[in-house]
């Protein structure tokens, strides 16, 4: 019954937030963007507002949170009651506070990792597509070999060897993820490189730098941006999974994945508190996916 109830409440909230966000977007959007927002689907409006909420919480975490990030405040596993609205965890730290700081830590680390993997992957991918020849061959075969090992397994292997700290976590996940970005960036760039305008620019005698900057990048930005959203989801889920397995972000840093792990025993008593951080992860991923889906749909719709 409570499951059914929460599903109904969830759907109601979804529509409410979606409608309100759409109305706000239309009211406050700059004039030239208004047509874009007019037929934005509810899912995308919902996604945009959730992302905005997370960003605000992440930035202003210390001001919003009622207590300190690692502060031990008393008894463990307190029920939901004032002043601990969501109870306390197994060390007696305030759950709500740690959820709020989690937005900063988990999302921040995932974002930094994605940005790093994206920078490296797309740079190498475009370079390989444009240069062709042995450079392309070697890079692509190397990436193929890495991609033949499942991502999580490769990450686990690398984490065993390099040990688990936040820095190695970021580097390992970024390296593993960069192979996927490389693949996409290379295929996008290859689609552009075969165009006649690139041939024309080459025959004109343009240098490599100008080809990338003026001829390829402007045409590759749209697919790469959508991919950034997808890669973020993937990285975010990977880091959360590793933290949940005890191999990612370490206590006392507040992090959603490890919060689920630490408090998982409560589930067996029917307490849903450990699902809150898991739900926080799910909600952000859903939101990003909704927005990406909308963008991809728009991009494919405009082509017709």
């Amino acid at each position: 019954m409570p499951i059914l109830f929460s599903i109904v409440v969830g759907i109601a909230l979804f529509f409410m937030i979606g409608f309100v966000a759409r109305a706000l977007l239309q009211a406050f959007a700059p004039a030239h963007l208004k047509p874009t927002f007019r037929d934005t689907p509810l899912t995308a409006c919902f996604g945009l507002s959730v992302i905005l909420l997370y960003v605000v919480v992440a930035i202003f975490a210390p001001m919003i949170a009622p207590f300190g990030e690692g502060e031990v405040l008393g008894a463990q596993f307190l029920p939901w009651a004032s002043p601990h609205y969501l109870g306390t965890d197994k060390l007696g730290r305030d759950m709500l506070t740690r959820l709020i700081y989690g937005a900063r830590n988990t999302v921040g680390i995932a974002f930094a990792t994605t940005a790093l993997s994206f920078f490296v992957g797309s740079f190498l991918g475009i370079w390989a597509a444009l240069a062709g020849g042995w450079l392309d061959q070697w890079l692509s075969r190397f990436v193929d070999a890495l991609m033949a090992i499942p991502a999580l397994i490769l990450s686990l292997l690398l984490l065993t060897i390099f040990g688990t700290s936040v820095l190695t976590l970021i580097l390992v996940i970024a390296a593993v993820d960069a192979t996927r970005v490389y693949r996409l960036a290379r295929s996008v760039a290859q689609g552009i490189v075969v165009m006649d305008y690139i041939e024309a620019a080459r025959l004109r005698g343009e240098g490599m730098w100008r080809l990338v900057r003026r001829e390829i990048l402007p045409n590759a930005v749209a697919p790469l941006v959508a991919e950034f959203g997808l890669r973020f989801c993937f990285v975010f889920l990977s880091i959360s999974a590793l933290s949940f397995l005890g191999l990612g972000i370490k206590p006392p840093t507040a992090d959603w994945g490890s919060m689920v792990r630490e408090n998982a025993t409560l589930i067996t008593f029917g307490d849903i508190t450990p699902l809150l951080p898991a739900g926080a992860i799910a909600l952000l991923t859903v939101a990003v996916n909704f927005v990406v889906d909308w963008q991809l749909h728009r991009a494919s719709g405009l082509k017709e």
């Binding site: 006649d196 305008y197 024309a200 402007p218 045409n219």
Partner: peptide, 14 residues
């Protein structure tokens, strides 16, 4: 050179 398909011969972003 002038190409058959002007669509692919002109960079759409310039």
């Amino acid at each position: 050179m002038i190409y058959q398909m002007a669509d692919t011969a002109l960079n759409p972003k310039l």
